[in-house]
Design a protein around this nucleic acid. Sequence first.
DNA 1: GAAGGTACCCACTATTTGGTAAGCTACTAA
DNA 2: TTAGTAGCTTACCAAATAGTGGGTACCTTC
Lengths: 127, 127
Amino acid sequence: MSEAVSLQTVVGVNVFAANCPSRSVLDHVTSKWGVLVIVALSGDTLRWGELRRSIGGISEKMLAQTLRVLEADGMVLRTVQATIPPRVDYQLTDRGRSLADRLIPLVEWVGDNAVEIVAGRPEAGAS
Amino acid sequence: MSEAVSLQTVVGVNVFAANCPSRSVLDHVTSKWGVLVIVALSGDTLRWGELRRSIGGISEKMLAQTLRVLEADGMVLRTVQATIPPRVDYQLTDRGRSLADRLIPLVEWVGDNAVEIVAGRPEAGAS
DNA sequence: GAAGGTACCCACTATTTGGTAAGCTACTAA
DNA sequence: TTAGTAGCTTACCAAATAGTGGGTACCTTC
């Protein structure tokens, strides 16, 4: 059990504790849409509409909600230009970029292994 | 936009496409309890009860459900010994271990940054 | 004989998450 | 005049997720 224990010891807070506030952070950074938003912004600054179009299947509601959470956690910076039509830019903060460095390998892993994993799943109604 | 585009190009499938099957894999590996189970098992094999006790706050139902999903995706291996009382061991497969290699840096990042992030959040009911 | 441990499953309920569709402001183009 | 654009917000509803409490089987300990 050496490794798992050392993990809990090394980090400042214990993610394995039920009431640890880090749990909320973990939930945000591993949320369904949060991951994709962070990775999408890892390339460069995107406008609202660009973000919406680049993340297939996201609804406006979910995009807005996800961006608000990520902004509150200091991962994403929102810049409004009061022009007509309005222009709103989203970019990663330093913190967001350091998070993206951890998320990109994960997303790449999913991309590399997804086909195999899906193909290997037992069928739901197998006899 | 070079980086974000190259990310989509490099991986075999496009995680940004709405109907891509990789989305389900992404959902599983970033699920609330899935992350903690994988990381907990990264140290070594654990029994059902050990797993339950080491992940604070998880219910039996959620642990069972999470383990079934991870087993179906080939991340976790379940070994039953038909002794009395029954003994069931859970361990990572090779695939699970390679996933853990991507998840541990993320969880460590959360552990290192959680305090700062939580402290910096705007207060909900600020005047 | 009652209680406890192990590793679950099942039904029911509650909470959270997510989707759909509409509306909003202020403009421009047809 | 109507439609369209940009970037949202709100209300309503469906679905997924999560918790509770019970039951199971078989044995050991009190």
